[in-house]
Simulated assay, not measured.
Amino acid sequence: MTRNILQKVTLLLILTVSITTMNAQTNLNENQHLNKQQKSIVSIASLTAVGDIAELKIELNSALETGLTINEIKEVLVQMYAYCGFPRSLNGINTFMEVVEERKEKGIIDVVGKKASAINDTESKYEVGKKTLQTLTGREEKGPKTGASAFTPIIDTFLKEHLFADIFSRDVLSHQQRELASISVLSTLEGLASQLEFHLSVGLNIGFTESQFQDLFSVIETHVGKQQADIATGVLSKIVN
């Protein structure tokens, strides 16, 4: 009798350990790849950048189905103007407005989501942007300006005050989501390898994996083409190898 009880307890322990191990492995595998919402951000950013409105409309519908909120998608589209210009951004926003209205007419009520919190106004926007950038890169900015920032100081001001304070500090999206959108545009458009390299490095610093970036490039290949996906893969290889 005692032996049977011990056998049952042992079997139960083995099953418990096995299930725990399987769950841990499943979670690890999931964390190594982009989820549906993240892939939707990639698609929206990429299609907005190239101006493929027909495909963008499809992906905007899909993004809402994954659970992304209206405000989260708006934020992605607004951020696009810093990377591919106001016209593309506005076209994306107008397309999304149509999608939301069409879904309402069908009786589909999508979650609006939270609004952006007020940005800390006790510091200058330049300092807010500088701190945000340092958080993203994991490096403290020291010494005199170099490169484009030294040659044209106002661009450094615009980058800090506008991109990294006005846009990146808005908490509707996380830093990971914003970097995902930025990297997607830079992977989509031609001739931006140096900027892509910077943002891929930032992405790795804030927790993305090489496998997740490979997922991103697969989405780029689907929407833009193999050539751009291969270029982006090459840029990533320079960083991780």
Rank of each mutant, 00 (worst) to 15 (best):
I109Q: 15
I109M: 11
I109T: 15
I109A: 15
D110N: 14
V111C: 13
G113W: 04
K114D: 11
A116R: 05
S117T: 10
S117M: 03
S117L: 01
A118Q: 10
A118R: 08
I119R: 05
N120G: 02
N120R: 02
N120S: 08
N120V: 00
D121G: 00
E123Y: 14
S124D: 11
K125C: 04
K125F: 14
Y126F: 15
E127V: 15
V128I: 15
G129S: 11
G129A: 14
G129W: 04
G129K: 12
K130Q: 13
K131P: 01
K131A: 09
T132F: 06
T132M: 13
L133I: 04
L133S: 09
T135E: 12
T135S: 10
T135I: 04
L136K: 01
L136R: 01
T137K: 12
G138W: 07
G138Q: 08
G138F: 06
R139C: 06
R139D: 09
R139A: 09
E140K: 10
E140F: 06
E141F: 15
K142T: 15
K142A: 08
G143I: 00
G143M: 01
P144A: 12
K145S: 15
G147C: 10
A148D: 08
A148G: 00
A148C: 05
S149P: 03
S149W: 10
A150H: 07
A150W: 06
F151I: 01
P153R: 00
P153C: 02
P153G: 00
I154T: 13
I155K: 01
I155E: 01
I155M: 09
I155C: 00
D156M: 01
D156F: 04
T157A: 12
T157G: 03
F158V: 13
L159E: 05
K160H: 11
K160G: 02
H162I: 08
H162K: 06
L163M: 12
L163H: 06
L163K: 02
L163A: 13
F164D: 01
F164P: 02
A165Q: 09
A165N: 14
D166F: 08
I167K: 03
F168V: 04
F168Y: 15
S169Q: 07
S169C: 05
S169W: 07
S169I: 00
S169K: 05
S169F: 02
R170L: 14
R170M: 14
D171K: 07
D171I: 10
V172G: 06
V172W: 11
H175F: 13
Q176H: 07
Q176R: 13
Q176I: 03
Q177V: 03
Q177W: 07
R178I: 04
R178V: 08
E179L: 14
E179P: 04
L180I: 10
L180A: 06
L180N: 03
A181Y: 08
S182Y: 08
S182A: 11
I183R: 01
I183T: 06
I183Y: 04
S184G: 05
S184R: 03
S184V: 02
V185P: 07
L186G: 02
S187V: 03
S187K: 03
S187G: 12
T188L: 09
T188R: 08
L189S: 10
E190W: 10
E190S: 11
G191H: 03
G191E: 00
L192R: 05
A193Y: 09
A193D: 15
A193P: 02
